[in-house]
Nucleic acid binder design. Sequence first.
RNA 1: GGCGAGGUAGCUCAGCUGGUUAGAGCGCAUGAUUCAUAAUCAUGAGGUCGGCGGUUCAAUCCCGCCUCUCGCUACCA
Length: 678
Amino acid sequence: MKEFKRHLVTTALPYANGPVHIGHLAGVYVPADIYVRYLRLRGRDVVFIGGSDEHGVPITIKARQAGVSPQEIVDRYHALIKDSFERFGISFDIYSRTTSKIHHQTASNFFKTLYDNGKFVEKETEQYYDAEAHQFLADRYITGTCPHCGNERAYGDQCEQCGTSLNATDLINPKSTLSGSVPVLRATKHWYLPLDQYEPFLRDWILEGHKEWKSNVYGQCKSWLDLGLQPRAVTRDLDWGVPVPIKGAEGKVLYVWFDAPIGYISNTKELLPDTWEDYWKSDDCSMVHFIGKDNIVFHCIIFPAMLKAEGSFILPQNVPANEFLNLENDKISTSRNWAVWLHEYLDDFPGKEDVLRYTLTANAPETKDNNFTWKDFQDRNNNELVAIYGNFVNRALVLTQKYFDGIVPKIADLTDYDKETLAEIALIRANVENSLENFRFREGLKETMNLARLGNKYLADTEPWKLIKTDEARVKTILNVALQLAANMALLSEPFLPFSSARLKEMLHLPEIAWECIGNSDLLTSGHMLGEPFLLFEKIEDEDIEKQLKRLADTKVANEKNSFKASPAKSDISYDEFSTMDIRVGTVLEAAKVPKTDKLMKLLIDTGIDKRTIVSGIAAYFTPEELVGKQVCVLVNLAPRKLKGIDSQGMILLAEDADGKLVFVTPDQAVMNGVVVK
RNA sequence: GGCGAGGUAGCUCAGCUGGUUAGAGCGCAUGAUUCAUAAUCAUGAGGUCGGCGGUUCAAUCCCGCCUCUCGCUACCA
């Protein structure tokens, strides 16, 4: 592995419309912080960049809902996020934000450079425009009736009732959420980054040049490249963001995914106004992006293409993306409040920052999605941190206190076993280093704990509490060795457990010692006065865990209550309008799954009028066998539509339950096919 | 459906380019021990390495098919 002069470590910018939860921590911030702390301890030149992502449509919507300005929203969450990271010991060199002046300038200049060098393609498309509010509407600003489930409050990008993703133009009766007026389609011009042109470069750089990347990252990139890249719009019609810095682009801003990664550059600039280019534009700097798997394509495909287009920046050396963390066997979800929020954890478990850091690292989703449970959190604290690490330290200190008044005793003679034990430290250190250099944090942590295990074994084998009656000189040697192990543990565990490391150093009255000294057996000199022993970790009781579990159970109950709300009645219609719908009872004659789809079923229906083909999205809930012979209600005068190449002539009526399950609306006695439903 | 990642002991995970009896931590059982927050130490039980085929002298590791989980994507009148 090439030795770099400088290191630039970035973490995904959390979106400033909500607080940070354990999923963010486990996937991005904890591993990044371990890596950075390690590099610093090795004396490497490293900058650690973080910040809030504060632009984009969801923030403007949240602001509108709360009746405040977008700035107020981002101010609130930026402050909350920044503060909780700080309390949790994520050791950013800077945690800034994309609404900063310097970011606006940087992003603006970046765009301008690409524009001036002809790196963009201009395209005109038709988008909804609100004539009353005098602006184009992002998909999220348009509501209307979902063509699938009839929800009248579906958004232009997605219906939140049935989960379908939509195009704004799909909506029935579209309405602008700004003015309530009916939007009109109008042409608008945007700039696109022609990603397709960068395909050969990306292919060579990633697929040939970075085979060492994690398999999930490499595989995802390969998948994208093999599918073929499309030009992507880098601008939007919106009034919240970085204005597009060219003439004729008034009212347009940079699309949020274009401006956000530039935030890494801006924040470095803010931190190091004079020397930032040493990190961003010098081949002897290694840049590493810590992200979650949802961000792979942005950091491995799009941002590198942007950097390449600009021309003067380096590309990331690695992008160690993690998978996702689940919570108590369920997906973490901000909207469902299914999460452990960092700021709440810090309040509920004061002084236990390292317990969460430990649990999240030991169980990090490095290779696949993992599950966080409070029981596991308690077990790892009680059985590992307390029983192995804390206990060993406590034993060494308490024995020294008891026998030698807390003064590091002098070594008489080292036995072979003593020497072997001490020699083990350097081996463990090498293993930890190797793990961390290769982004294997789980493994590094386990290795670190092996040092404490070694200490416990050493004490059990040498039994100083027995020897004290017969051979005080030997006990002095034993405790000296044990204390050296404890001191080494204080140093070795620092990247992972910085708070405990500091407390242990304090307990040992250990001065600042270089990482390279780990493995030495004279970190504490004889005659050195130790501090008062206190407990490094405390047990976590069942009631603490039960409190957290109850909170989650309450959330679940609340979610179930909220999940089903009968949608409000639609506006009145006349009988004539109703009677235009021709609904008949029909019988299913044949049913077969449509190949190459998950949900579509092709049905042949005897409507009494004729026999016709209808395609319906019910394959997930019914088998063909149970459908044949069934009587159903059919809207027969719905305009035909092609689905997967099959002409669908009508619609089967179904009721969708709160959990999405579909149920037929069917006559409760057999009737003739073709009978009218009214 | 397409693509990607994953399916290894009760739980969480290792297993690097195929090679002797498949490993670790936690949990469990038994024994030892009492300096220590009943904390530790030793020993042990426990796996048809998702299923079926194939390549090979030899496959957890390579190839094909199937199946389950997660993600991206298509589809839902």
